[in-house]
């Protein structure tokens, strides 16, 4: 089982999500964000960076996270990313349609781009379906796992930008589960964290 560390922002949704026992069992350490620069991380296999992190601390942490990835670490990033801190980041903000499922002929607009990937032995597309806040346009060589119908990337693996692996998604299940909203986000975490701990990445 991989050793997973999570950066903990101290906000209410992250408190709930990462202290929930069924998820906390996969987490070796919650690193309080203001203490991140002083905390050793190289002995962890995975560093999870949740959504909605404080901008100032995130940009201060960028160099350390990139150094960790260069040494072969796996970095996971959740949620919309208005600030430049991911490798070769190309983020496109889009209006969030959270009511799509109320409309006639409702379609979420999501497609599985790599159904053979081991992640989908742990979650289904419907477990990743609530709404999106935007898309990424990853560099050549990155592998999109979940996409929008127009080809934007909702989740991708980037093993080319650094010596390690980046798992980057616009989805923000940490926020929604932690704020008691959107049941699909619980199913997503129920599968995603076991995959992160034990799956083929």
């Amino acid at each position: 089982m991989r050793k997973i560390a999570v950066i903990y922002s101290g906000n209410a949704s992250h408190y709930r999500t990462f202290n929930e026992p069924k998820y906390n069992q996969y987490l070796a350490e919650l690193i309080y964000f203001p203490n991140f620069l002083e905390t050793p991380i190289n002995h962890f296999d995975v560093l999870l960076v949740p959504s909605q992190m404080n901008e100032t601390l995130l940009l201060q942490a960028k160099e350390k996270i990139h150094a960790y990835a260069e040494q072969g670490g796996i970095v996971v990033a959740f949620g919309p990313q208005p600030w430049e801190w991911l490798p070769n980041q190309k983020w496109e903000e889009r209006e969030t349609n959270f009511w799509w499922w109320k409309e006639k002929g409702a379609k979420s607009g999501l497609v599985l781009a790599a159904p053979e990937n081991d992640l989908f032995n742990y979650i289904t597309l419907s477990d990743a379906t609530w709404h999106q806040h935007g898309v990424f346009w990853p560099i050549a060589g990155a592998k999109t796992l979940i996409a929008t119908e127009d080809g934007g990337s909702v989740m991708y693996l980037d093993k080319v930008s650094t010596g390690g692996t980046w798992i980057i998604t616009t989805l923000d299940p940490d926020y929604h589960f932690g704020s008691y909203f959107m049941p699909a986000t619980e199913r997503f975490l129920d599968g995603f964290l076991p995959w992160l701990a034990n799956g083929e990445i």
Binding site: Q52, M53, N54, E55, L57, P80, Q81
Partner: peptide
């Protein structure tokens, strides 16, 4: 300001 993405 929590400095979060939604608050930008």
């Amino acid at each position: 300001d929590p400095g979060h993405a939604f608050g930008i």
